[in-house]
Simulated scan of single mutants.
Amino acid sequence: MKTLKLVVVSAGLSRPSSTRLLADRLAQATARHLEDRERTADVQVVELRELAADIANHLVTGFPSPALRGAVEAVTAADGLIAVTPIFTASYSGLFKSFFDVIDATALTGKPVLIAATGGTARHSLALEHALRPLFVHLRALVVPTAVYAATEDWGTGGDDRTEGIAQRITRAAGELADLTAALPSAAAPAEAVIPFAQQLAALGIGPA
């Protein structure tokens, strides 16, 4: 079975953190989906909380610490990326944004990314679409259609007749990331050919009506 590198970026500030909990559940679900596609996942978690001082120092000096350099290299070399942030003032956290400011603007081009967020209230769920998705689109990443938001009341609930529960949203988003990641050439080796955009959409089950 081919091994793909899955990197999880978690911007949770507390310990334990609901952001890390959501990140872990997304990674586990993606790994299961990849196994169904005859792939194995080598999962690496980047905890931004542990790199906060290094990120701040890099922004003012331009020199990354060995730990920060390793985190950036892991994200750059990943076959698939899961990015999870808490929502503050209707947007991603400053720590989350600062980390991606450190990364080269072209490093995420064509990389499959699953975006997710946590918050105290469901009112902030739209931050995924007006803040996180535009950020990764600007970086030319391939953002999967389903974004996952978990409010405090979502944990342990199964949804209702009109909305999916968090477990269903995690499963669907993870399946989309696994489909796209498994369909693209490994980031660890140069691609032999450009993957047509129609083929990328087909991997997600999206096609002409």
Rank of each mutant, 00 (worst) to 15 (best):
E47L: 06
T89K: 14
F99H: 11
V72T: 14
L59M: 14
F88K: 07
A147W: 01
K111L: 12
V143T: 15
P134K: 05
V84L: 00
L139N: 01
K111D: 05
P66C: 08
A52V: 15
Y92A: 14
P66T: 05
D161Y: 11
P64C: 08
F99A: 04
L114C: 15
A127N: 00
G159I: 13
T118Y: 06
S93F: 00
V102W: 00
H138L: 12
F88P: 08
E73K: 14
T106L: 04
L95T: 15
A150E: 10
W155V: 15
K97S: 05
H138Q: 12
A117V: 07
A147P: 00
F136Q: 12
L142E: 03
H58A: 13
L68G: 02
A151M: 01
D104H: 08
R133G: 05
I103S: 06
R123N: 10
A131Y: 00
H124F: 08
L51C: 11
V72I: 15
T121A: 13
V72K: 02
A127H: 03
R69K: 11
I87W: 01
F136G: 11
R49T: 05
D54N: 06
V75R: 03
G158T: 15
L59A: 12
A105F: 10
P64S: 14
D54E: 08
R140H: 09
A150H: 10
Y92C: 11
L128Q: 00
T146N: 06
R49L: 10
A77V: 03
A117L: 04
D154M: 10
E50D: 14
V144K: 01
T76D: 10
A127Q: 01
P145L: 01
V144D: 11
T61S: 13
T118I: 09
V72A: 13
G110E: 07
A127K: 01
R69D: 11
R49N: 00
A90C: 05
T157M: 12
T157W: 01
A56L: 10
A67E: 09
P112L: 10
D101G: 02
A90I: 10
H130Q: 09
F63G: 08
T157I: 09
A77S: 12
